[in-house]
C-alpha cells in the first residue's frame, strides 16, 4: 500500500506545486489522477519515486519511508516502482530488447549492464512481456523506428520487468490517437489486474479515465478537491476541478452555446459516454 501524508513541494521559483497532499492507494487499486495543467499531477507522481524531491511530508510504500532514504536505499526502492511516461521516454537509439532490459538495471551490476550481459531469467521475462504487449516480432528494432502506440507498449514492458509493486503512469495516452489511447489504457489496467498492481495514472482525458479506472482523484492548484468513484464525477465536480465550462455538451451544436469554451476540453469526450 502506498500512503502519502501531507506531501508538499515548493519549487525554487516559489511555486507551491503541492500543498499538503494526503492520499492512500490500497494494493491492486488503479487510481486516475485528473486536474488542469499545472495542478501538480506530474509533480505528485514524481515525488513518489523522488525524481522530484518533496519539500515536506512522507511517502510510505509497504512500510518503507521513501522520503528519508539515502541514494543507495532509494535506488533499491525505485526498483519496486515502475514508471510510464507521456512521450514514452525510451532510449531512442537502443533496441526494443535493450529498452525493456533497462528496467532490470537496478538488479544488475554496472559492467554486466554495459556489456548487455543480463541474466537469462531477465531475458526470458523480457520475451514473455514483449509477447504479452504484442511486440515479440520487434525485439531487435530500434526504438525510434516504432510508432507511438508500439513505443508505449515497450515503455509498459520496461516498467513491468522491474516486477514493481506500484506503477506511476504520467499521461500515458496524451501523445496517442483515440483508438491507441484506449488500447493502451486497457492494457495497463489489465496488467495491473493480472498482477494485483496498484497504479496512479495521470490523465487529461476524463472520459477515458472514467472508462478504465476504479477511483478518481481530482487535483487543483496542488490540493485534492475530489476523491471518489468515477460514477460520481459529474458536471459540478468537473467545474470544481477545472473551472466553469459547459460539461454536458459533447457535440458541436450544444457546445456552440458556450463560445469561449476551450475546444480541447470538450471534443475529447466521446459522445457515447
Amino acid at each position: 500500500m502506498l500512503k502519502i501524508t501531507a506531501l508538499s513541494k515548493r519549487y525554487k521559483t516559489g511555486d507551491d506545486a503541492l500543498k499538503a497532499v494526503s492520499l492512500e492507494v490500497p494494493d491492486g487499486q488503479v487510481l486516475g489522477l485528473i486536474g488542469p495543467s499545472g495542478a501538480g499531477k506530474s509533480t505528485l507522481i514524481r515525488c513518489v519515486n523522488r525524481l522530484v524531491e518533496p519539500t515536506s511530508g512522507s511517502i510510505d510504500l509497504n512500510g518503507a519511508q521513501l522520503q528519508k532514504m539515502g541514494s543507495r536505499k532509494l535506488r533499491k526502492s525505485r526498483r519496486k516502482i515502475g514508471m510510464i511516461f507521456q512521450e514514452y521516454a525510451l532510449v531512442e537509439r537502443l533496441s526494443v530488447m535493450e529498452n525493456v532490459l533497462s528496467g532490470r538495471l537496478g538488479y544488475v551490476g554496472f559492467w554486466k549492464s554495459l556489456f548487455r550481459k543480463f541474466p537469462q531469467s531477465d531475458i526470458d521475462e523480457a520475451f514473455r512481456l514483449l509477447e504479452r504487449v504484442g511486440l515479440d516480432h520487434m525485439v531487435n528494432k530500434r526504438a525510434d523506428e516504432l510508432s507511438g502506440g508500439q513505443r508505449q507498449r515497450v515503455g509498459i514492458a520496461r516498467a513491468l520487468i522491474q516486477n514493481p509493486e506500484l506503477l506511476l503512469v504520467d499521461e500515458p495516452t496524451a501523445s496517442l490517437d483515440p483508438k491507441t489511447s484506449r488500447q493502451i489504457m486497457r492494457l495497463i489496467c489489465e496488467l495491473c489486474e493480472e498482477r494485483g498492481l496498484s497504479a496512479i495514472i495521470n490523465i487529461h482525458d476524463v472520459a477515458l479515465a472514467k472508462l478504465f479506472v476504479q477511483r478518481i482523484v481530482g487535483l487543483q492548484a496542488g490540493e485534492v478537491v475530489f476523491d471518489g468513484a468515477p460514477e460520481s464525477l459529474d458536471s459540478s465536480v468537473l467545474t470544481q476541478i477545472y473551472g466553469e465550462e459547459d460539461w454536458e455538451a459533447t457535440s458541436k451544436d450544444k457546445a456552440s452555446e458556450n463560445e469561449e469554451a476551450d475546444p480541447d476540453d470538450v471534443n475529447v469526450e466521446p459522445s457515447n459516454v
Binding site: 535506488r75 525505485r78 525510451l90 532510449v91 533497462s102 549492464s113 522491474q162
Partner: peptide, 14 residues
C-alpha cells in the same frame, strides 16, 4: 533529452 535520463533513473539504475 532528459526524459530518457529520467526514465532510466526511475528504474533504480546507478
Amino acid at each position: 533529452n532528459l526524459d530518457q535520463v529520467e526514465a532510466i533513473t526511475a528504474t533504480g539504475a546507478s
